[in-house]
């Protein structure tokens, strides 16, 4: 074994083509750009619309406005008080949205997705990345990706709030129990959000991954096993929850705006 570290690097094979991949490697990053782009556009528009987020009759609140803590909120929709100033530039759920954004931005899966597609670093395996130099996540600002753990804790709290919203949505405006398609939509969304949150790598680490001896912690080992199964589906859950969030929001909007009628099973 000769030591090459001290000598100038020996040349690599002179292969002209930047990549010799013959498959459609560009498809996945392209779809990611389209998917994420569409979602972000929709979400941004919706968050600043500041209307049609609450169905008073059935107590449906869209997750994009939960918790609704702006002075501009419909008081019935504000389960946690109203203290943020009412301004077209401040979303009604300005307390939770930044954390949700942070949670997803620092999510290990989304990082992979946008580094590959938006940042082209690298666009696909064995395809050159589009940058002259590269420091990865060693420096500012990307070193803050390590804050994902905090975002995870925040996401757990927010998921609890969403769950609470789903519960409250069973009490109609008249105080009676209600159950409609909207409730189903809300619950599916909440369940998926929990699945996504529980499948988080940080979660997997906290529940058991950090242990050195599983055998001394049988309960946490079991938990870790379950979370690991979910974790294997983290990517799918990331996309599924984007879909359920948008669908839930759109459904609430459509009912609130009176474009459609909620299908009622009870009440």
């Amino acid at each position: 074994m000769t030591n090459t570290a001290t000598q100038p690097p020996r040349p690599r094979a002179a292969i002209a083509a930047k990549t010799l991949r013959t498959d459609r490697w560009w498809l996945a990053p392209l779809l990611t750009v389209l998917g994420l782009g569409a979602w972000v556009t929709y979400a941004t528009v919706r968050v600043f619309l500041q209307n049609n987020y609450w169905v008073e009759k059935y107590h449906y609140l869209t997750p994009f406005y939960s918790p609704c803590v702006s002075k501009g909120c419909d008081p019935h929709a504000a389960h946690f008080g109203q203290f943020l100033p009412d301004s077209p530039l401040i979303p009604y759920a300005a307390l939770s949205l930044p954390f949700l954004l942070l949670f997803r931005l620092t999510c290990y899966y989304y990082r992979k997705a946008y580094y590959r597609s938006f940042w082209m670093s690298p666009p696909a395996c064995a395809v050159p990345d589009g940058h002259k130099t590269y420091g990865g996540e060693t420096r500012f600002p990307l070193i803050f990706q390590n804050a994902h753990r905090y975002a995870f804790y925040a996401a757990v709290v927010i998921s609890l709030i969403n769950t609470w919203d789903a519960f409250l949505a069973h009490e109609k405006a008249d105080g009676a129990f209600g159950f409609g398609l909207g409730n189903v939509v809300l619950w599916v969304n909440v369940i998926m959000l929990w699945a996504y949150t529980a499948s988080c790598h940080s979660c997997r680490h906290i529940v058991g991954g950090r242990l050195k001896h599983f055998s001394k912690h049988p309960v946490r080992y079991k938990l870790w096993g379950w979370v690991s199964v979910l974790n294997g589906k983290h990517m799918q859950l990331a996309w599924i929850t984007l879909a359920t969030l948008a669908i839930t929001d759109f459904y609430v909007m459509a009912v609130a705006a009176g474009w459609i009628n909620d299908l009622r099973f009870v009440g």
């Binding site: 990082r111 992979k112 690298p122 395996c125 420091g135 996540e137 790598h201 991954g209 950090r210």
Partner: peptide, 26 residues
């Protein structure tokens, strides 16, 4: 810290070791 978990290592590993999920991220 250089690793940006883009998972190409896992994609090519012939032993199907989940390098990113089971080693790097932990």
């Amino acid at each position: 810290g250089f690793c940006n978990i883009t998972k190409c290592c896992t994609e090519v590993c012939p032993e199907h070791i989940k390098i990113t999920d089971n080693a790097i991220i932990p």
